[in-house]
Design a protein around this nucleic acid. Structure first.
Length: 204
DNA sequence: TGCCAGGCCCTCTTTAGGGCCTT
């Protein structure tokens, strides 16, 4: 059983939306949570071996000049393997970050054993009052700390970690006698919305 | 050659379409 406040929260910046279409990671950021406290962080630019288009340069603030002398994926992912060893993983829209993590790990013959959880799927279940479920909107909606930096990997991972811990505390309030585990969160994240209220009644 | 993401989720659904999220 893994408690939900012992995880690594990660975020990728990439050249585009799809590794299957040749897109690559250009930055990874992550924070390690132990007992709900940030105990370590990871940030690295990654030279993707291809030019980044102007949209991505503008969107992330990461320029081709910045990536020119950055380490390659094999170096960064090797270090990141050690960073996440023994931890489960959280990301906002985790399916996106998981497919890039899997692609970069596969390209470098690396592997990991942690399971993923998704703050976006959870938000759609437990924060249905939010105007939408974009990371920036949810940070504002829940009045969570941020440094005003968006679309950089460590800043987004840190904001996602703040959101995640807030979500865990919301769940703990609704389920005061339950230990909030990753398994419970992943179960909630897959429930049809119509069954959410009933779930909280029966499990409490 | 020319095309180009994809998983989740809702609904005017399941013989489908379209919005939401991520870069």
């Amino acid at each position: 059983m893994t408690l939900a406040n012992n995880v690594v929260v990660l975020d990728f910046e990439t050249t585009g939306l799809s590794p299957d279409m040749g897109d690559r990671a250009i930055e990874i950021g992550a924070v390690k949570l132990v007992d709900g406290q940030v105990v370590d962080s990871f940030q690295a630019l990654i030279n993707p071996g291809q030019r980044v288009n102007s949209f991505i340069e503008q969107y992330t603030g990461i320029s081709n000049q910045m990536l020119k002398d950055a380490p390659r994926s094999n170096v960064v992912m090797g270090q990141f393997t050690e960073f996440i060893a023994g931890f489960n993983l959280v990301a906002h829209n985790a399916s996106f970050d998981k497919k890039f993590l899997d692609a970069e790990f596969s390209a470098n013959k690396l592997s990991y054993s942690g399971q993923f959880a998704c703050s976006l799927l959870l938000s759609r279940r437990i924060s249905q009052e939010a105007p939408n479920h974009k990371l920036g909107t949810l940070i504002q909606h829940h009045q969570l700390a941020n440094d005003g930096v968006f679309h950089r990997a460590l800043a987004d991972a840190t904001m996602t970690a703040n959101l995640w811990l807030h979500q865990v505390s919301l769940l703990q309030q609704r389920l005061p006698t339950q230990q909030i585990t990753l398994d419970i969160i992943n179960k909630i994240s897959r429930l049809p919305k119509a069954k959410i209220a009933n779930f909280f009644q029966t499990i409490k």
